[in-house]
């Protein structure tokens, strides 16, 4: 037996002191748990191990009597400890069971420092108590692992790493495949419908046409000039209409006969174009020149021509059409000419 443990008077006194101290300490703990028994706090982690920068949930749960009021921990600066940060706070959830309520809150936490981190007990203070009463949760520990190899500056500069190859998954292009499939199906359906019923649609849109035999340009022009002459518009003081009709007829004739865009040209431009055609003799040029110039005066300058001028204009129009038609007949074969001069007149339903 060691000398210090011998039951001497001194040792007995020392043991009495120790026992008294332990008893007092136990009493003080008992007195403190008077509040602690009413309020119970616990803290749990999803996992005790995360990679650096990873996130896990810390759940704080407090069970308390219905009539008790506690101050909920605020965690200023969004940190639990200097190494552990709060990323997101959940709402405080309350559930009731018998005469107690359970309050809980989720904290999403992260850490950017590798190593084992100690999370101290979270303290909750009872409000309205005569003396300061505090409940504490259990303490926790979190291991933060750095998965990246430690860079040694002494190794020098290393090359850029290639992108990480991830295995191809069909789910990546699932949307594209779905929409493409639907598109192909729709197109197929449309092609099928068109091939089956398309002829019905086209028949409906385009009613049966009866093609009228083609007519030479000069015949149409002559017929139109006959109509203008018979209408005697100038005798009814409608000279403007009379000359508009004559020039429109001549322009249409020129378009079909010489393939020039006479309807979109002014008189001077028409005359220049006809000169460049080179098939028209001077006499015919003079005739159409007289008609177009006089028509311009009547149409744009309120000019009232004399009756002789009106007659001369239509005569010149007839002569121009007749001469330019004949000039072609003389210089080429009749059949070819007729084919050249012909135009699709109109189609009848």
């Amino acid at each position: 037996m060691p000398k210090s443990l011998k039951p001497t008077h001194k040792n007995i006194q020392r043991l009495k002191h120790h026992f008294a101290f332990i008893c007092l300490f136990a009493l003080s703990l008992f007195a403190h748990n008077g509040f602690a028994q009413g309020v119970k706090a616990s803290a749990t982690l999803d996992s005790t191990l995360i990679f650096i920068g990873g996130q896990i949930d810390l759940k704080l749960e407090v069970s308390q009597p219905v009539d008790a009021t506690i101050s909920w921990p605020a965690f200023a600066a969004d940190t639990i400890t200097s190494n552990i940060e709060i990323v997101e706070r959940g709402q405080v959830d309350t559930t009731k069971a018998n005469d107690r309520i359970v309050l809980s809150q989720l904290f999403r936490i992260t850490s950017f420092d590798s190593g084992l981190h100690y999370i101290p007990p979270i303290e909750l203070e009872l409000i309205g108590a005569e003396s300061k009463e505090i409940a504490k949760s259990n303490s926790l520990s979190l291991m933060v692992v750095n998965p990246f190899p430690v860079v040694n500056p002494e190794d020098g500069i290393t090359g850029i790493k290639d992108p990480i190859n991830t295995p191809f998954k069909l789910s990546e292009i699932q949307d594209i495949l779905t929409y493409t499939g639907i598109g192909i199906l729709l197109i197929g359906l449309l092609i099928f419908l068109y091939s089956k019923y398309g002829h019905l649609i086209s028949k409906k849109e385009k009613p049966a046409e009866k093609v009228v035999p083609l007519e030479p340009a000069h015949i149409i022009a002559m017929r139109e000039l006959d109509r203008i002459q018979e209408s005697k518009l100038w005798e009814k003081n409608r000279e403007k209409e009379y000359y508009t009709d004559i020039t429109d007829t001549l322009r249409t004739y020129l378009e079909h006969r010489f393939n020039v865009t006479a309807m979109e040209q002014t008189s001077d431009e028409i005359l220049d174009t006809l000169k460049s055609v080179g098939e028209i003799d001077k006499g015919s040029m003079a005739e159409i020149d007289q008609v177009l110039k006089l028509a311009d005066l009547v149409k744009f300058a309120k000019f009232n021509p004399l009756p002789e001028e009106n007659n001369r204009s239509i005569k010149n129009a007839y002569a121009f059409v007749d001469k330019t038609k004949r000039a072609v007949v003389e210089t080429s074969e009749k059949e070819e000419t007729e084919a050249d001069e012909t135009i699709p007149v109109k189609t009848e339903e």
Binding site: T266, S267, D268, E269, F300, A301
Partner: peptide
């Protein structure tokens, strides 16, 4: 000229 013709517009 005392009147406008299409040539003038063009």
């Amino acid at each position: 000229r005392g009147y406008v013709i299409p040539e003038d517009v063009r």
